[in-house]
Design a protein around this nucleic acid. Structure first.
Lengths: 251, 251
DNA sequence: CGAACACTTGACAGCCCTCAACGTGAGTGG
DNA sequence: CCACTCACGTTGAGGGCTGTCAAGTGTTCG
């Protein structure tokens, strides 16, 4: 909990930028920008020189804290990052869970300070991008600029998903389906995966009581929707789960 | 309701771009970008040539509809624009109310289609910006690029404010305080203003029943927090209202 | 082995949604 | 000027979902 902020002091953890970077980043959030046609080799090198590899971070280590001055965004390379705020009563509010390939820190550009905390839930690897530098580079690389616009535009809609007044069942189903899809998009299994966060974190994210999360998951298990052992999830009936989630995900 | 989509066909409503544009836009969402130092007169002209003045739109007219192909963002110049989605059961979900000086359409960049509908609640004037053009211009004007980044970054955090675990009172107070602040930021009165949206829209936005909105507002009135006549609001006790809203707004 | 923590399960209550009825104001046509 | 209509808003009664409180179980780690 009292671990140091690792973000502003990455010097010790920056890996050398060897030739493997190109393949190393093939699953990164910026791969589309990097690999898209129309970006010449020189430009690609500029982007890769910009990257600082950070980590590994241990569970409980913070990536950045609320109020830290904003200087960089980061793509999750491995592990899960939780973003959260703490209100003046000390209550935690989970804003999101960020999986490999996803970008954190975009909500800090406005305001020049991080508006939330970011903490590693397991062993986390990051790619750090100085924002002034990547923004400058984006003026020379329209594809990169467009990619940044898209990333931010995407995040605008995500937060409002679980703000709806859906039932506990629907939100939980949507949460599981969402995880499944995001993992599948990065090449992981969509049917079997691990919950890297506690029931309490899930409850907090879905705006429910931890007891409700527990009850709903148990009921899902009894009804044959999923099989859950500790934090290992196996989806048994993707269709019915999807049907439940549909009112939240709108599809 | 069945009014045509006015956004893709602005030709008839584009006003001439006379010399008054510079003063006309002084309260616009892009004024900071336009007027900031470091942007030469040539660049400023480029931006102003880009603008298409749209409107006036009548109440009930749509700015764009969900699924329309994305081509432009727009700054609200006057009036209020409501954004909303409709789920497959036909239920409406209000995403936000957009006041003068605020920008709509930023959540459409990702996906190339508008993910929601936008409708005028009263008489609305807009400034329309072709997104490909303004993005291209942003590669030459770092201040403009930075401004677009900030606008999007800001919108990322807004949606998560009214999540469900706050009480009806707290959310209503936060809604009123939020309106008050946003109006004040644009030069309007922070103590007296009009609700341009119906109780039903407010309820939908706050994830409550219309009856709850009605009851809460009446109670606020009985307790001397506000004076409400129809849709005219007068804030009588800003401090107590702010105190109520604090748990939602986090300040 | 014991302590701390996470998770589960049950009982109960409260907030708010639903359903229903009524009041109010604006616009219309006679 | 008034009756009428219709959408919007208000008010009341009742019930369900889920949060709160409490206790018990399982797991991890020193």
């Amino acid at each position: 909990m009292s671990s140091p902020v690792v973000f502003p002091r990455t010097d010790a953890t920056i890996l050398s930028d060897d030739g493997d970077s190109l393949t190393f980043c093939s699953t990164c959030a910026f791969s589309q920008a990097c690999l898209s046609e129309g970006m010449d080799k020189r430009a690609l090198m500029d982007l890769h020189v910009l990257v600082e590899h950070v980590g590994p971070l241990q569970p409980g280590e913070h990536v950045f804290r609320e109020g830290d001055s904003f200087s960089a965004i980061a793509a999750v390379r491995a592990g899960t990052v939780k973003t959260y705020q703490v209100d003046r009563d000390g209550h935690e509010q989970v804003l999101g869970f960020h999986l490999p390939g996803e970008v954190i820190g975009l909500n800090a550009i406005h305001g020049d300070r991080y508006p939330c905390n970011a903490i590693a839930l397991d062993t986390v690897m990051l790619c750090r991008f100085s924002f002034p530098k990547i923004a400058l580079l984006a003026t020379r690389l329209p594809n990169l600029q467009q990619h940044l616009f898209r990333l931010m535009s995407h995040d605008i809609g995500v937060a409002s998903l679980f703000a709806r007044d859906n039932s506990a069942d629907e939100r939980m189903a949507a949460f599981l389906i969402g995880l499944s899809r995001r993992l599948a998009a990065r090449g992981y299994s969509s049917r079997r995966f691990q919950l890297t966060m506690s029931r309490t974190d899930i409850a907090n994210y879905l705006r429910q009581a931890p007891e409700t999360v527990s009850r709903v998951l148990r009921r899902f298990e009894r009804e044959g929707l999923v099989h859950i052992k500790q934090r290992d999830v196996e989806v048994l009936d993707m269709d019915r789960l999807h049907e439940l989630a549909a009112t939240v995900l709108r599809d």
